[in-house]
Simulated scan of single mutants.
Amino acid sequence: MSTVELDQVSRWFGNVVAVNDVTMRLGPGVTGLLGPNGAGKSTLINMMAGFLAPSAGSVTLDGRPLHRDPDIYRVLGLVPEREEMYDAVTGWDFVLANAKLHKLRDPEGAARRAIATVDMAAAEDRDIRGYSKGMKQRIKMATAIVHDPEVLLLDEPFNGMDPRQRLHLMQVLHDLGDQGRTILFSSHILEEVEQIAGRIEVVVAGRHAASGDFREIRRLMTQRPHQYTLRSTDDRALAAAVIAEPGTSAVELVAEPGGGTSVQVQATDFSAFVHALPRLAAQHGIRLLEVRPADESLESVFSYLVAR
């Protein structure tokens, strides 16, 4: 059972700060690294994999610095986001070559087991150049687990997979986590992470924004102020009705560029607002024409967590 620790880690490239003062501890089980694109997830994973040295702070595996220590790859497996593979070889040859590089006692047996685990036996004799995106992701996964590592790092591993492939890989990660492996996988999709991760670490703009299980992260997200754009048959009456609700903090009647109006609402209590809105419309004889969240992007959600 291995532990990866990041202690006040920063990484910059020239004047660009990619990771800023992140402290994190990853133990046995499945941990999700969640954040929007460009949040610094890949940079963090590259430091945990020993490819990048932190500009400040330390990244260790069981107390041992990771950077430029090739021996760590005996106990660490990696699925990078970028696809730089030997397309002219078969899936079998690619996984077998990795097994031989690890000097395993039975490389053929290890390759066979890894390929079966990711459900790629039917395509193992085909050249990788003919694989779909999802198949390439799975064969990369096979190379990462062929030596039975204690630590597994996966950067956006579900990209390009169809629903069946995704469910299968999720079950594989579940099983490996239950065996006591330390697994970290990154994603920008909360629903993807919460299905398999016992713990979630949220990063935004290189900063560690939040930490906890998916219920805690969901709670933090739903508690933030939510903004909505409303259009109705009587926007002025709707604005007057909505502002009287306790879960509403601000209401503005806005003139639309093409004519007409809309109501901009900021709600501090998400649950109370979504239940009150149809009731208010019915009470005042107003027909709702549009209810649109104005700030539901991951960037806005996570930026709120950073600002807390």
Rank of each mutant, 00 (worst) to 15 (best):
T222P: 00
E216T: 09
G285Q: 09
L238Q: 04
S262Y: 12
R279K: 13
L288S: 11
S303R: 12
F302M: 14
H275W: 09
R218V: 02
H284P: 06
V242I: 15
G206I: 00
A282D: 08
G247M: 11
R218L: 03
G206W: 01
V254R: 12
Q283P: 02
D235P: 01
T229Q: 15
T248E: 10
P225C: 05
S262L: 08
Y228H: 01
A250T: 07
E296F: 01
I217G: 06
T261N: 15
Q223G: 07
I200H: 01
A281M: 06
E201V: 11
V291D: 10
E252N: 09
H208I: 00
H284G: 14
V202S: 06
A209L: 07
V242T: 09
V301G: 00
G212A: 03
P257C: 09
V291P: 07
Y304A: 13
H284W: 11
E290W: 01
V204F: 10
A244Q: 05
L280G: 10
V203N: 03
E216Q: 13
I196E: 12
Y228I: 00
V203I: 14
H275V: 14
S303L: 12
V263E: 13
A281P: 00
V301D: 06
A250V: 03
E201M: 07
S232W: 00
P278C: 07
Q223V: 01
S300V: 06
H275K: 13
F273E: 10
S211L: 10
A209G: 03
A272R: 08
R207C: 08
P293D: 13
R199C: 09
D213H: 01
V274C: 11
I200G: 02
A197F: 05
G198W: 13
E252P: 00
Q283K: 05
V254W: 09
S300R: 09
L238A: 08
A239N: 06
E290P: 00
A197E: 14
R218N: 02
V301E: 06
L220P: 00
Q266M: 06
S211G: 09
L230V: 00
R207E: 07
V274I: 15
F302Q: 02
R236I: 02
F214P: 00
S211T: 12
Q223N: 09
